[in-house]
Nucleic acid binder design. Structure first.
Length: 306
DNA sequence: AAATCGGGGCA
DNA sequence: TGCCCAGATTT
């Protein structure tokens, strides 16, 4: 959950998951749809599919591998996570290099080279620093140093235990590090989503397992590109009445590599297409972009007003 | 090596 | 608006 995700955002999901599926065997036995719905809103949905795959492998193995190599062979467990588990859970001398540690080391070394190459050097340097005793505490100390003192914009060097060793501090401007390539601006795309209503129920689709929002529930929508697609054609294909088709608003949403403006349209259905039809109160598990769109038609009220 | 993949918080 | 976040996987 914490892969590229802040602790405040992930916490409520972690509480929910561990209460609902306390043991790895419980998660392994959970239906795919339940896990995907519980992950909705957390993003990077491949992580949810990998977590479930991982739980099933571990359940079949009868327990967790305890080495970095064994852990990294599991779905969704890469260099950082395998190192963190090996060190913290199993007391193995393994490095756990996350974004925090990369920043701490970039400053410590005043790393001026190509960032992709510097990341490799940083990993090697941290591997060499991992102690044989209490490697888990070393991993957490390095990450917490970055999270609490060696922060991205205004590092608190005055109380940093490493300030005397820090090359960036000696240069006088530690906040200049790490030096990363600038990102290009995100392209803008437009799409049109359809809230199709029949007998008080709304039609949902399931997106294909791979690609953007893979495996998640969704509102029917046109393709997302420069112009957006043909909403009238979509309405026809879904069995909606052309006369009832009307735009009710639009939402904006930022994805990893593009910005979306999604027009939200509504129509009445005349024939019931096969698929998932839900009363609004039963609509859960939508990823954020579709939750925003759905909320335009069915504003959710605070619990206190119910 | 570069692209893909979410979402929200913050200055 | 740009950058960041306890990255991993695919191309």
């Amino acid at each position: 959950m914490l892969q590229q995700t802040t602790i405040p955002h992930a916490t409520r999901y972690w509480v929910d998951f561990t209460a609902r599926w306390p043991r790895v065997e419980d998660l392994a036995a959970a239906p795919d749809e339940a896990v995907m719905a519980a992950w909705a809103g957390l993003g990077y949905y491949a992580r949810a599919r990998n977590l479930l795959k991982c739980a099933r492998v571990v359940a079949d193995l009868g327990g967790f591998p305890e080495t970095r190599e064994g852990l990294q062979a599991l779905p969704g467990i890469g260099p950082y996570t395998s190192g963190a588990i090996a060190a913290i859970a199993f007391d193995r001398p393994a490095a756990a290099v996350d974004g925090n540690v990369e920043r701490v080391m970039a400053r410590l070394l005043a790393a001026k080279g190509d960032w992709a190459e510097e990341k490799v050097r940083i990993r090697d340097e941290v591997e060499a620093l991992v102690p044989d005793e209490r490697p888990g505490e070393f991993a957490e100390a390095m990450m917490d140093l970055g999270a609490t003192l060696c922060t991205p914009k205004s590092p608190n060097c005055l109380i940093c235990p490493l300030s005397g060793l820090c090359a960036a501090r000696a240069e006088g401007a530690p906040e200049r590090y790490p030096i990363k390539p600038k990102r290009s601006a995100k392209p803008k795309r437009t799409g049109r989503a359809l809230i199709l209503v029949m007998d008080g129920k709304v039609r949902l689709e399931r997106r294909p397992d791979t690609g953007l929002l893979g495996g998640m529930f969704a509102l029917p929508s046109t393709e997302w590109d420069e112009l957006g697609g043909d909403i009238a054609a979509l309405c026809r294909a879904e069995g909606g009445e052309a006369d009832s088709l009307a735009q009710i608003g639009e939402v904006r949403h930022v994805f990893t590599h593009f910005e979306l403006r999604l027009e939200v349209w509504q129509a009445d259905a005349k024939t019931r297409q096969p698929g998932d039809w839900r009363v609004p109160e039963d609509v859960h598990g939508l990823p954020s972009v579709f939750a925003k769109a759905f909320r335009l038609a069915y504003p959710s009220r605070p619990i206190s007003e119910r």
